Amino acid sequence: MKKVIGSGLLAKSFFGLGFSADCLILASGVSNSAEQRASEFLREFELVRKQIEDNPMLPVVYFSTCSVYQKMQTPYTRHKLEMEDYVSKHADSFYIYRLPQVVGVVKNLTLISYLVNAVLDRETVTVQKYAKRNLLDIKDVVRLSHYLIENKIGCNTIQNLASIAAVSIVDILSEVASILGVSAHSNVVEMGESYDICVDFIVEQFGKADPVLNEKYWVQVLRDYVPLLSKGTD
């Protein structure tokens, strides 16, 4: 039995997917990395706690964040680490996946949708010079995790599902503008942080030829989604 909890991009991407393996997919957590409200963190904790208690026989799939690797911890990253700890201790079996910047067609302002809107609206975007982001297509989140769960690979471990390269937001903004055929207006500030994400697990399970391990993967992700996201601004 497959049970999906949530209504956002991640959850919807799993709804129509067939699973032969039993699993409880928890895709209704705090997704805003800037979130600071204790009430939102508590809401996710209570949801996860109840679902684990109500479905004791189902392996739990929990999505965390690669931003736990950044030097400066935030309320969001601390919460995600606490949730990882809770799931690993209370689920009978589990798959915990740390995700980077997931890209898909969304209505809320994630990084890429925000940049698309800002460029089209001729807004000046403040960009941190040293900040980098690792982009991952929502379709690849589903593809990779589905294969791993179906084949019971990495059960009871925490794994990174990410692409090979972290890309500067300066370069991401430039590529978004190029795809849209519009000049970007930016204010680059001497700030920002980047961090490495180990993808050895993906290399081991999917091979070096997997698309997410291509250095230009991020460009293709933007070319696939920027036109789709721009339609929502009409």
Rank of each mutant, 00 (worst) to 15 (best):
S230C: 09
Y97Q: 00
L17V: 10
I164Y: 15
F94S: 15
L17T: 01
D85R: 14
L111G: 06
G8F: 00
M72Q: 15
N32E: 03
F94V: 11
V212R: 03
P75W: 14
D140G: 02
S31W: 00
T157N: 02
S13W: 01
K132Q: 10
V61C: 00
D196T: 11
R37S: 14
F45S: 01
R122K: 13
G18H: 09
Q73F: 01
E175S: 05
Q51V: 00
L161V: 09
L9Y: 03
A27T: 01
V142Y: 13
M83P: 03
F14A: 02
L229V: 07
V61Q: 00
P100V: 06
V212H: 04
V102W: 02
A184H: 08
A34Q: 13
L111F: 12
W218I: 05
V116R: 12
A177S: 12
V212K: 03
V203L: 15
S33V: 02
C66R: 01
V170S: 06
K71H: 10
V60T: 12
D200T: 08
T77Y: 02
I153H: 03
H79A: 09
F45R: 05
K89I: 05
Y195K: 05
L120C: 07
S39T: 15
A21R: 15
A177N: 05
R43L: 11
L9A: 08
L99G: 00
K3I: 10
D171A: 09
A165G: 11
A131I: 12
V221D: 01
H185T: 13
F19K: 01
M72K: 12
H79E: 08
